[in-house]
Design a binder for these strands. Structure first.
Length: 271
DNA sequence: CCCGATTCCTGTAGGC
DNA sequence: TGCCTACAGGAATCGG
C-alpha cells in the first residue's frame, strides 16, 4: 500500500518521464473513484505540457501550463508508465498519454484513490488547504507537535494520523514510531511531555526516511510489474506482529483497535 | 470545537 | 476445493 515514502518514490520515478512532456490524449474507463473523475478532464488536458511533478502529503501534483492534475493513490492505487498500445488490464481506470509514446496509467482496485483537476493553485484546493506540515520538513518539530497537542485528550496514535496535525503518517508508521519512541498508543496526546514529543518527532522522521530507502526497492518491483506486497514486513518491529516477542524485551506484542484501526504495541516498552 | 463512528471499495484470509 | 463472511485501510464527513 502506498505510504508517504512510496508516493515520494513514485514521484521520483515518474518525474523524469513527465517533465516537459505534452499530453496527447486521456482515456477514462472508470469515473467512479473516491471523487468522480471530471468528464471534461480529457478536453482540458489535451495539449497541456507538464512542467513538474510535485508531492504534498500523499498527493501527487502534476503541474501543467494551465492547471494541476491532483492524484491520490488511496490504498491500492499505482501509477505506471507503459508503452503506447499496451492493452489495459482490470482496474486500469485512467490513461494519460504523452508525446514520448508512453502512457501514465492509473490502476486502483479498491478505488479509494482520486484523479482531479484544478485550474487554481493546487495548495488552495479544498483537499489540500487544511493539511498540516510535512513530517520531513523543518516545520515539524517537537515544539510544534507539543503545542498542537495541548489540551487534546485524543489518543496519540489517531492524533498522529490526523492530517491536519501532520501529514503522511499512516497506520503502519504511527504504530512503528510510537514503539521506537517508547510511547503507549493510547496515551492522551495532551499528556506527553515536551521532551518525549521531541523524541517522537525525531523518531517519525527517522522511520519515514528509512522507509523511503525501502521505497526504492518497492519502486523497482513496482516497475518490473511484480507488484509483490510486504517488502517492509521484515523492517517492522510491531506492525502485524501480534503475539510475537518484542525485539527489545521479548514480551508478546499486543493488538488493539484504536480509532477503528488496528494498533500494535509492546505493553512493557511503551508507556 | 472536539472526537468517535461511518462510509466508500475489492482482494485476501480464515472458517467450515 | 470452494463458498461465505469478516476484515483491512485513507481520509472526508456525519453525528453527538
Amino acid at each position: 500500500m502506498p505510504e508517504l515514502p512510496e508516493v515520494e518514490t513514485t514521484r521520483r520515478g515518474i518525474a523524469p518521464h513527465l517533465a516537459n512532456a505534452t499530453i496527447t490524449g486521456v482515456t477514462i474507463r472508470e469515473h467512479r473513484l473516491r471523487w468522480p473523475v471530471a468528464a471534461d478532464m480529457a478536453k482540458r488536458l489535451a495539449g497541456c505540457t507538464i512542467n513538474s511533478v510535485n508531492r504534498r502529503a500523499k498527493y501527487l501534483l502534476l503541474n501543467t501550463d494551465s492547471g494541476t492534475i491532483i492524484i491520490h493513490l488511496g490504498m491500492s492505487g499505482t501509477l505506471r508508465l507503459v508503452k503506447n498500445g499496451t492493452p489495459p488490464k482490470k482496474h486500469d481506470h485512467v490513461d494519460i498519454e504523452i508525446d514520448s509514446g508512453r502512457i501514465l496509467r492509473f490502476n486502483d482496485p479498491r478505488r479509494f484513490g482520486c484523479l482531479l483537476w484544478t485550474g487554481d493553485h493546487p495548495l488552495s484546493h479544498p483537499l489540500l488547504s487544511h493539511l498540516g506540515p510535512e513530517p520531513l520538513s523543518s516545520a515539524f518539530t517537537g515544539h510544534y507537535l507539543h503545542t498542537a497537542s495541548t489540551g487534546r485528550r485524543i489518543a496519540i496514535k489517531p492524533h498522529l494520523m490526523n492530517s491536519s496535525i501532520v501529514v503522511g503518517v499512516g497506520n503502519i508508521y504511527a504504530s512503528e514510531s510510537l514503539f521506537r519512541a517508547g510511547i503507549h498508543p493510547k496515551r492522551a496526546a495532551g499528556r506527553i511531555a515536551r521532551k518525549r514529543m521531541m523524541r517522537l518527532t525525531e523518531t517519525i522522521k527517522l522511520v519515514l526516511q528509512e522507509s523511503i530507502h525501502h521505497g526504492g526497492t518497492t519502486l523497482r518491483d513496482f516497475y518490473n510489474g511484480d507488484g509483490k506486497p510486504g517488502y517492509f514486513s521484515n523492517e517492522l518491529a510491531v506492525y502485524n506482529r501480534q503475539g510475537e516477542a518484542c525485539i527489545k524485551c521479548r514480551q508478546p506484542i499486543r493488538q488493539i483497535t484504536l480509532g477503528q484501526r488496528s494498533t500494535f504495541y509492546c505493553p512493557t516498552c511503551q508507556r
